[in-house]
Amino acid sequence: MSIQHFRVALIPFFAAFCLPVFAHPETLVKVKDAEDQLGARVGYIELDLNSGKILESFRPEERFPMMSTFKVLLCGAVLSRVDAGQEQLGRRIHYSQNDLVEYSPVTEKHLTDGMTVRELCSAAITMSDNTAANLLLTTIGGPKELTAFLHNMGDHVTRLDRWEPELNEAIPNDERDTTMPAAMATTLRKLLTGELLTLASRQQLIDWMEADKVAGPLLRSALPAGWFIADKSGAGERGSRGIIAALGPDGKPSRIVVIYTTGSQATMDERNRQIAEIGASLIKHW
Rank of each mutant, 00 (worst) to 15 (best):
T27L: 08
L28W: 09
L28T: 09
K30Y: 05
V31L: 12
K32G: 09
K32T: 11
A34E: 03
E35N: 02
E35Q: 08
D36L: 14
Q37K: 13
G39H: 14
G39F: 09
A40W: 05
A40D: 04
R41Q: 09
V42D: 00
Y44L: 10
I45A: 14
E46V: 09
E46N: 12
L47G: 02
L49Y: 11
S51K: 09
S51F: 05
G52Q: 07
K53V: 15
K53D: 15
I54G: 04
L55W: 07
L55Y: 11
E56P: 02
E56W: 05
R59Q: 06
R59S: 06
P60V: 12
P60T: 12
E61V: 11
E61P: 01
E62K: 05
P65C: 02
P65R: 00
S68V: 02
S68F: 02
F70C: 08
F70K: 04
F70I: 07
K71T: 02
V72C: 07
V72K: 07
C75D: 04
C75H: 00
C75F: 02
S80C: 08
V82C: 11
D83C: 04
G85V: 06
G85K: 12
E87F: 09
Q88R: 15
Q88Y: 15
L89G: 06
L89Y: 07
L89A: 07
R91K: 12
Y95A: 04
Y95G: 04
S96G: 14
S96H: 14
Q97S: 14
Q97V: 15
N98Q: 14
D99L: 08
L100N: 04
E102V: 15
E102L: 13
E102Q: 15
Y103A: 06
S104C: 05
P105I: 07
V106L: 14
T107R: 00
T107P: 02
T107N: 02
E108F: 10
K109T: 13
K109Y: 12
L111S: 09
T112F: 13
G114H: 05
T116L: 08
L120D: 02
L120R: 00
A123E: 02
T126E: 14
T126C: 09
M127E: 12
S128M: 00
S128V: 02
D129G: 02
N130H: 00
N130L: 02
L135N: 03
L136D: 01
L136Q: 03
L137N: 04
T138I: 13
T139H: 09
I140M: 11
G141Y: 05
P143K: 04
P143I: 05
A148R: 12
L150T: 09
G154M: 05
D155N: 05
H156V: 12
T158G: 04
R159P: 05
L160I: 15
L160W: 01
D161E: 07
R162D: 07
R162H: 09
E164C: 01
E164Y: 03
E164T: 01
P165W: 03
E166V: 10
N168D: 05
N168H: 03
A170F: 09
A170D: 07
P172Y: 10
N173V: 09
D174A: 04
D174L: 03
E175Q: 13
R176Y: 08
R176C: 08
D177F: 03
T179W: 00
M180W: 10
M180F: 10
A182V: 14
A182L: 15
M184E: 00
A185S: 09
A185V: 07
A185L: 00
T187E: 02
L188E: 00
R189A: 13
R189D: 08
K190A: 15
K190E: 15
K190P: 04
L192Q: 04
L192C: 08
G194A: 12
E195S: 14
L197Y: 06
L199E: 14
A200V: 14
S201P: 03
Q204C: 15
Q204G: 06
Q204I: 13
L205H: 01
I206N: 08
M209G: 02
E210H: 10
A211V: 08
D212K: 05
D212F: 04
K213W: 08
V214M: 09
A215F: 04
L218K: 02
R220E: 03
R220N: 03
S221D: 09
S221V: 12
A222Y: 09
A222M: 11
A222F: 08
L223P: 02
P224T: 06
G226S: 12
W227S: 00
F228C: 07
D231N: 05
D231P: 04
K232D: 01
S233M: 02
G234H: 00
G236A: 10
S240T: 08
S240F: 04
I243K: 02
I243V: 12
I244D: 04
I244F: 04
A245R: 02
A246K: 01
G251F: 09
P253H: 10
I256A: 06
I259S: 02
I259K: 03
T261D: 08
T261L: 15
T262N: 10
G263I: 04
Q265A: 14
T267N: 14
D269C: 09
E270H: 11
N272K: 03
N272H: 05
N272P: 02
R273Y: 10
I275V: 13
I275A: 04
I275D: 01
I278E: 01
A280I: 13
A280V: 14
A280N: 15
A280T: 14
S281G: 08
S281M: 12
S281W: 08
L282Y: 03
K284Y: 11
K284N: 11
W286P: 02
